[in-house]
């Protein structure tokens, strides 16, 4: 077995490299999910980067290329037209620690999230559940609600991520 390459923090200066126009738009005409990312003092984190991966409405996890598409002639970022469903999104938090994602309801009920930030030496995985799921019943008492998005109005969901402390989000481990 090969030994894995260690993770290192994404640092504070990824902003000119990793985010891309349209990264928050997996598809148009569906739902909007938004929220804040908070640290252990309850302060919003303005330099977190969230990545999303999800099934399409039929439950397919095949995805599709094109989420970073650029104009092949000019190399200019042309973003997305909101129709091709690539299943992949990438959103930096803004100065208030806020993020927004536009996508379609995944057929399997949840959106996978990978959290990066300055100060976070190794990324964290969590999930946004849009409806109740038996998996939530297996979580430690009182913590399941941290994975369940709140429907603020039809089609608009709120999901805050707390890295530490009161109401700390459940983070998932796939390696053990």
């Amino acid at each position: 077995m090969n030994r894995p390459t260690p993770s290192q923090t994404v640092g504070p200066f990824y902003g000119y490299a990793l985010p891309f126009p349209g990264g928050e738009e997996i598809a148009t005409g569906g739902i909007t999910v938004h929220g804040h990312v908070y640290d252990g003092a309850g302060d919003p984190i303005p330099d977190a980067l969230l990545e999303f991966w999800q099934a399409d409405p039929s439950g397919s996890l095949k995805g599709a290329p094109g989420s970073l598409r650029r104009d092949p002639v000019t190399g200019r970022v042309v973003g997305r037209h909101g129709v091709d469903f690539t299943g992949f999104g990438r959103v930096p938090t803004d100065a208030d620690g806020h993020w927004t994602l536009r996508t379609l309801v995944p057929g399997n009920g949840y959106i996978s999230v990978c959290v990066f930030a300055r100060g976070l030496l190794h990324h964290l995985f969590t999930r946004i559940y849009l409806r109740h799921d038996p998996f939530l019943d297996t979580l430690p008492a009182g913590r399941a609600r941290t994975l369940l998005a709140a429907e603020e109005r039809p089609g608009l969901y709120r999901f805050d991520i707390r890295l530490q402390g009161e109401g700390e989000t459940v983070f998932l481990d796939f390696t053990s």
């Binding site: 979580l139 530490q164 983070f171 998932l172 481990d173």
Partner: peptide, 11 residues
């Protein structure tokens, strides 16, 4: 202030 204090939940 940016690391979870609860153990990760295995899936």
């Amino acid at each position: 202030l940016r690391h979870p204090k609860q153990p990760l939940v295995p899936v």
